[in-house]
C-alpha cells in the first residue's frame, strides 16, 4: 500500500482515533496556560520589585526555566519528585512542568508590557493615594494588557504545541495516541501528518486572532 492508499483506507480511522486525544491535549494546554499566567505575573512583579532578593530570585527563575529543555524539567518533576516523597500523576506533572516553564516566558511578556507604560501613570496613581499594588491592578495592568494580548496569544500557540511532549510522562493526548497508532499500523507518515494537521486546525485560527489583536486599537487609543 502506498501512502495515498493508506490515507484513503485508514485516514478516517486515524483521524477519529487521534481526535480522541483532543480533550487531554486541551486540558493540559488550558491548565498549564492558567498556571503560567498566574505564576508568570508573580515572577514579573518580583523581577520589577524594588528589593534585591525577589529580583534576584525572578532572574534566576527565568534563566533556569528558559535555559533548560522543557522535557528535562518534565522528567525532573515526574521521575524526580518521587525521590523527595511526592508522586505526581502524569497530568499533574504535565501541567506543573509546562506551567512553570511557561511562567518564565509569561514573566518576560508581563515585564515588557508593564515597562511599556509611561512612568507618569504610576506616579499619577500614587499621587492620588493608591498603593503601588492598587496602581498596578487598576492603572498599569489594564493598559499593559492591551499591548500584551498579541504576545500572550502567541505564547498560547507555542504552549499548545508543546503539550506534544507530555506523552513522555504518560499523558494520553494526541501524540500518545499517534504513537500507539504507529505501533499498531506501522504507518508513521500518515499518522503523524494527521496529528500535525489536528494541531494546525487550532493554531492557525489562534495565529489569525493574534494578528487581529495586533491591528485592533481600543476605544481609547
Amino acid at each position: 500500500m502506498n501512502f495515498f492508499q493508506v490515507m484513503e483506507q485508514k485516514g478516517w480511522y486515524f483521524f477519529t482515533t487521534l481526535m480522541g486525544g483532543w480533550p487531554e491535549t486541551l486540558a493540559v494546554a488550558v491548565c498549564s496556560f492558567v498556571f503560567a499566567m498566574v505564576i508568570g505575573l508573580v515572577i514579573a512583579l518580583m523581577r520589577l520589585s524594588r528589593w534585591r532578593i525577589p529580583r534576584w530570585f525572578a532572574i534566576s527563575y527565568i534563566e533556569f526555566f528558559r535555559g533548560t529543555p522543557a522535557l528535562v524539567q518534565l522528567f525532573v518533576i515526574y521521575f524526580g519528585f518521587p525521590d523527595i516523597g511526592f508522586q505526581p500523576s502524569p497530568f499533574q506533572a504535565a501541567i506543573v512542568g509546562l506551567g512553570l516553564n511557561g511562567a518564565a516566558y509569561m514573566a518576560e511578556i508581563y515585564r515588557a508590557g508593564i515597562e511599556s507604560i509611561h512612568r507618569g501613570q504610576m506616579e499619577a496613581a500614587l499621587s492620588l493615594g493608591m498603593t503601588p499594588a492598587r496602581a498596578m491592578q487598576h492603572i498599569i495592568l489594564p493598559q499593559a494588557m492591551r499591548t500584551m494580548l498579541p504576545p500572550i496569544t502567541n505564547f498560547a500557540i507555542v504552549l499548545l504545541k508543546d503539550t506534544s511532549i507530555v506523552f513522555a510522562v504518560g499523558v494520553v493526548e494526541i501524540m500518545a495516541l499517534a504513537r500507539n497508532l504507529v505501533t499498531e499500523t506501522l504507518q508513521s507518515a500518515a499518522v503523524y501528518l494527521i496529528a500535525g494537521a489536528l494541531y494546525l486546525c487550532v493554531t492557525i485560527p489562534m495565529a489569525r486572532l493574534a494578528a487581529r489583536l495586533e491591528r485592533q486599537r481600543q476605544a481609547w487609543q
Partner: peptide, 30 residues
C-alpha cells in the same frame, strides 16, 4: 498622599478611562 493633590506638567491622565473614569477611580478605590 490623599491629602496632597498633584497636577502634572504632562497631565498623566489614565488613557484607558474616560474623563469620568479618571475622576472617579481614586474616590472609589482609595
Amino acid at each position: 498622599r490623599r491629602e496632597i493633590g498633584f497636577v502634572f506638567q504632562r497631565f498623566n491622565l489614565f488613557p484607558h478611562l474616560t474623563a469620568l473614569g479618571n475622576v472617579t477611580i481614586a474616590p472609589i478605590k482609595v
